[in-house]
């Protein structure tokens, strides 16, 4: 038999991929970002150097400390009425994160339940639920929220309920599609043969298998909710001033971008970081939750 040299084999097998470090970083960085945001939210009164609504007209539009004219008294500068940006950012985390969390729990819960029922039962139930979903999707979202805010007045719960009313439909759509696919699988057929009740099939067999898309959708929704809240704030139907949310802070600084970029930029960066951390976290969680991927 020909003795052929194994070309480059030793080289390749010698390469150690920095896999463990890389894997850990994709978890550690977003985890740290989210943890910081959560600590900010929970301990806002302890961490913030000033109250979020303390106005100091003498200190208005002060740039961040590292710029000319800045002061260490206001590390991230101040806004149009002299409120400390850092303090408002910390308090804003409280409102923005809790709104996001509330909305996601409500929309994911409602959307998943309706989606599974529609997808698994099919037929008329499916037809009815999906038409309702279509109608919900077709409505101009912001308009409804505005109407809603106008009738019961702006406030935290108004924002949560207004965004939730619009957010469940995409979940229902997605989950219904997944449930429809799962309904045809052999293991669901097997469960039916055994005599498992529809409710148990939906809870035990369908639900655990839609967790992946659910998590991905939810992490993507973090950004959507925070941004929608910002739009509502801009239109006067969001979190009413003087309370701080990242959304209304971005809006506060919108018209001043050329003279005081820091007012919008810092909350904007905060939104970006949290949204990205959420997405990375979602990826990581999905891998962890799937027993097939767990060992890799």
């Amino acid at each position: 038999m020909a003795t052929t040299k194994l070309m480059g084999l030793d080289k390749v097998s010698g390469v150690k991929r920095p896999k463990s470090i890389f894997l850990n970083l994709t978890f550690i960085i977003p985890a740290v970002v989210l943890l910081v945001a959560m600590i900010m939210a929970i301990f806002a009164p302890l961490l913030a150097p000033y109250p979020y609504d303390q106005i100091a007209l003498t200190d208005r539009l002060m740039p961040p400390a590292f710029m000319e004219g800045g002061s260490t008294a206001h590390i991230l500068g101040t806004d149009l009425v002299g409120r400390d940006i850092l303090s408002r950012l910390i308090y804003g985390a409280q409102i923005s994160l809790s709104v996001a969390l509330m909305v996601i729990v409500i929309t994911a819960g409602v959307g998943t339940a309706l989606g599974i029922v529609a997808g698994y039962l099919g037929g008329r139930t499916d037809g009815f639920l999906m038409r309702v979903t279509d109608i919900s999707l077709a409505f101009p979202a912001i308009l409804i929220a505005l109407l809603f805010a106008a009738t019961i007045g702006p406030g935290y719960w108004t924002v949560v309920i207004a965004i939730s009313m619009l957010g469940w439909a995409p979940y229902a759509r997605l989950i219904r599609g997944e449930a429809l696919k799962l309904r045809e699988t052999d293991f669901v057929a097997q469960a039916r043969i055994i005599g498992t009740s529809p409710v148990r099939i939906m809870v035990r067999h369908i639900f655990p298998n839609i967790i992946n898309p659910l998590i991905i959708m939810s992490t993507l929704a973090v950004g959507m909710v925070i941004l929608t809240e910002a739009v509502l704030s801009y239109l006067g139907a969001g979190i009413p001033p003087p309370a701080a949310s990242w959304g209304n802070m971005v809006n506060d600084g919108r018209s001043l971008l050329d003279v005081a970029w820091w007012i919008s930029t810092f909350p904007g960066v905060a939104i970006g970081l949290v949204v990205m951390a959420g997405n990375f976290m979602g990826d990581w969680l999905r891998d962890k939750l799937d027993p097939r991927l767990r060992q890799i």
Binding site: M1, A2, T4, L6, L9, V12, S13, R17, I296
Partner: peptide, 12 residues
């Protein structure tokens, strides 16, 4: 004497 290997994260 054909050798075809797959180099994966988990090994060769």
């Amino acid at each position: 004497d054909l050798h075809t290997f797959f180099f994966t994260r988990r090994g060769v």
